[in-house]
Each structure stands twice: as structure tokens, then as C-alpha cells.
Design a protein around this nucleic acid. Structure first.
Length: 396
DNA sequence: TCTGGGGTCCTTTACCTG
DNA sequence: TCTGCAGGTAAAGGACCC
């Protein structure tokens, strides 16, 4: 036994557990928020009854999470709020409060690090931990340490979590689901046949709806069936890398180490408009948002201390199809003006006949640190193209 | 009737070069 | 000069996760 996986459910709001509550949608607009703060002092002080009912909701958000009382009506994560409003109009809609989740997340991780320092960050509410050298990590198959962790997390956050302990990350992640929301599950290598193979393939972290559908066409629905399927046929259907990975995953094999450190690869900002915008008729609004997104990405880069050499854009159209365009330059950048200029060039190569639902800006090929000073004026690849056509969305 | 935002990673395709 | 091929790389798309 040398790895284990812990998961904390996003803000459980213990006092809400019997009420149909969904959390999601976009944050309030600054104006709405200002009005509410004026009325209640702070959003956190607002009585529950004062929050919106989901019924009649008009907007484009999706549900981030829902209480079990709300799930009984068929609403759940990733569902559109409009649809949820029809299924459960009486549900209470709470806005997302990222600042608060981040604060809890930090306390959660600090509590773990104090007991088990080899930890991999997997987002706000999940981590992998290497039990090998942590005190108590080998006692009773890891049970001793798992119990200590749960107690420490509860003390630090008031939140419960479920923990899976297994020989590797793949199995530990599956084990963590066995006793939700607050249990501990230990999976031994010899448990593979009895506990893992009967599960649907979807339970493997990395098999999503598409891969699952393709497996089903091969008559494979459980992990056991996947394990029994000839490896060379999986390679035929899914390619060399994926085929081999599927085969190994079904045998419960995974040798990825717990990564305690990771460097960001890209930073991006994107936004979905309240209504689909037209490149010509809504040029002003698009241009302003485009520039704003570039400024946000530049801010993010500067605050995190990174610069990059690839700039890209993303468009999603009214029919939900999306396209991306990107370009790589031979110098590092992190300022809004350069990002805006390069993103504008990408935009020229994108089709703009259809109405636009979403606009995004991304900077990739990141390196730590600010660009060297002489790079500030480095715009050779851009200079050649500058002035060819007026920039789309204006505002250059 | 719909489908957020911020990421990572993999596969496919297009293009360049020898 | 044309064609085929192989390898490398950048761009585009898409699957997946939290």
C-alpha cells in the first residue's frame, strides 16, 4: 500500500442538507451584488428565504452542485439552470462563492500537509497523498492515518470527506467513492476481482461519455469485461497509447507517482454572453469584452509570475460548435497590449458569419518570470502584418 | 430546452524539409 | 520537375476532469 486518495465535497452547507438547494449560475452582476449588500450588509448574512427560487430563472448558467434533496427531482451537476428550474422550481438558487471555497480548500490542504507531506493537488476539493512514509500510513492498511486525516479536516473546516486507500492513484480514486460522503474504503490488490471488475467502465478516471460509448459498441460495459478483452484489439480500436492504457487500467495497474509540484501550462479567461452576439452588429460589445479578457489574462500572468509565447482565442457559436486559433511567437509576453494584438491576429483567421455565444483568450507555452526587458518591443512577426486590415472588434 | 469556466492531455491534420 | 515517403512540429479539435 503506498498511495491513497481523499476527496472533500464542495461546501456541504450542513444546515441546508434537507432543503432543495442548487449552487451555480454565474455570479451576481456587480450591480445586483451592490444592491444586495446594501440591503443585507453582506451576501453571507442574507437569510436563506431571501435567495431566489429557481423557478422562472432566465440565464445561461449550469448547476455546480446540488443537495441530495434537490437531486431527488432529477437535477444535478452540469445541468442547465433553465432545465433545472422546470424540474424543481421550488429549489433555492445560491450563487457560487469562489473566494469562500478557496479559503476552505486551503485549510483542507494545510490540515493534510501537517500529517502527510507528500500531497498532489487535484483541484479545490481533491488531493492524492502518498502514504508510504507518512506516520501511520502503513498501520492497518492505512486506516489509522486515514482516520487521523478525517478528524483533522473536520476540525479545520467543519467539513466531512471520503477517503480511499489503495495501492495506486487509479484504485484509490475509485475507492474514495465507495463510502461517500464520509467513509473510508481500503482496496487491496486481491480485491480487484470482487470490488473493481463489477463496476461500469465509467468509474475509471479518464473514461468519459465518449470512450464509454465506444466501449459499449464493443460489448464492454464493466471493468471486468474490459480486463478480459484482448489488449491488441483495444489498441486497434483506440490507438496505441489509449488502448494500452485502457488495458492496464482494467487490471488495476497504474504507476503514476504522487506529484507534489506542477507548473502551469496555460492561463485563459473566457465568457459566455447573455445573448449570442454578431461580429458586425455587436462589434462594440465584442471588442470591449475581447480587450477585457486580454487584460484579465495579463493580470493573471503577472500575479502568478509567468509569461508565455503562444496566444490563442476560442469562439463558441450559437450552435455550440467551437473553433480555436492560436499563434506562437519567438519572444515571451505577459502584457495586455501584446496579447490583445496577437489575439486580434488570431481572430482574423476565424470564421465570423455565425453569432457568437462565447469568447475566450488563452496564453500558453508558459515560462516562469517576466519577459526580459528587450522583449517589450519585440513585435517583428506582428509588424509584418500590421496595417493589413483594420482589427476586428476594433479597439486596438 | 439546453449545455460555465478553468485547466490538462492526446489525437489528428497540415505543412515543411530532406 | 514531379512524386512518394518519412519525420518533425505547430495548429486545431476534442475528451476529460474538478
Amino acid at each position: 500500500m503506498d498511495a491513497f486518495f481523499a476527496s472533500v465535497e464542495l461546501l456541504r452547507y450542513p444546515q441546508l442538507k434537507d432543503l432543495p438547494v442548487v449552487i451555480g449560475g454565474s455570479r451576481f452582476t456587480p450591480q445586483q451584488e451592490a444592491a444586495l449588500v446594501q440591503r443585507w450588509g453582506s451576501l453571507a448574512d442574507r437569510p436563506l428565504a431571501a435567495f431566489e427560487r429557481l423557478g422562472g430563472y432566465v440565464g445561461r448558467g449550469v448547476i455546480t452542485t446540488a443537495t441530495y434533496a434537490a437531486r431527488q427531482f432529477g437535477v444535478g451537476s452540469a445541468m442547465g439552470l433553465m432545465k433545472a428550474a422546470r424540474l424543481c422550481p421550488q429549489a433555492i438558487l445560491l450563487p457560487i462563492d469562489f473566494a469562500r471555497y478557496r479559503a476552505y480548500s486551503q485549510r483542507f490542504k494545510e490540515a493534510i500537509l501537517a500529517l502527510a507531506p507528500v500531497m498532489e493537488d487535484r483541484g479545490v476539493d481533491e488531493v492524492y497523498i502518498d502514504f508510504t512514509h507518512a506516520p501511520g500510513g502503513q498501520e492497518a492498511g492505512g486506516l489509522a492515518l486515514a482516520q487521523r486525516l478525517q478528524a483533522a479536516i473536520l476540525a479545520a473546516t467543519g467539513l466531512t470527506c471520503s477517503i480511499g486507500v489503495a495501492p495506486n492513484k487509479l484504485l484509490a480514486k475509485m475507492a474514495s467513492e465507495f463510502n461517500k460522503p464520509r467513509g473510508i474504503a481500503i482496496v487491496w490488490p486481491h480485491d480487484l476481482e470482487a470490488k473493481i471488475w463489477p463496476l461500469p467502465c465509467r468509474k475509471i478516471n479518464g473514461i468519459g461519455p465518449k470512450a464509454n460509448a465506444r466501449l459499449e459498441t464493443l460489448g464492454i460495459t464493466t471493468i471486468g469485461q474490459l480486463a478480459a478483452y484482448p489488449a491488441h484489439k483495444l489498441v486497434q480500436h483506440f490507438g496505441k497509447a489509449t488502448g494500452a492504457w485502457l488495458h492496464r487500467a482494467a487490471q488495476g495497474l497504474d504507476d503514476r507517482p504522487v506529484e507534489t509540484h506542477s507548473e502551469p501550462v496555460s492561463m485563459s479567461r473566457e465568457t459566455t454572453f447573455d445573448r449570442d452576439l454578431h461580429a458586425v452588429q455587436d462589434k462594440a460589445e465584442l471588442g470591449a469584452t475581447f480587450t477585457w479578457l486580454c487584460e484579465r489574462v495579463a493580470d493573471d500572468l503577472q500575479h502568478a509570475g509567468y509569461s508565455g509565447r503562444t496566444v490563442g482565442i476560442k469562439l463558441r457559436f450559437s450552435d455550440f460548435r467551437s473553433v480555436t486559433r492560436e499563434m506562437t511567437v519567438d519572444y515571451l509576453l505577459q502584457d495586455a497590449a501584446t496579447i490583445r494584438r496577437l489575439a486580434g491576429l488570431c481572430l482574423r483567421r476565424a470564421p465570423l458569419a455565425q453569432r457568437i455565444r462565447l469568447l475566450g483568450v488563452r496564453v500558453g507555452s508558459l515560462e516562469e518570470g517576466a519577459p526580459p526587458p528587450e522583449a517589450a518591443g519585440a513585435d517583428q512577426p506582428v509588424a509584418a502584418l500590421r496595417g493589413v486590415t483594420p482589427d476586428l472588434f476594433g479597439g486596438l
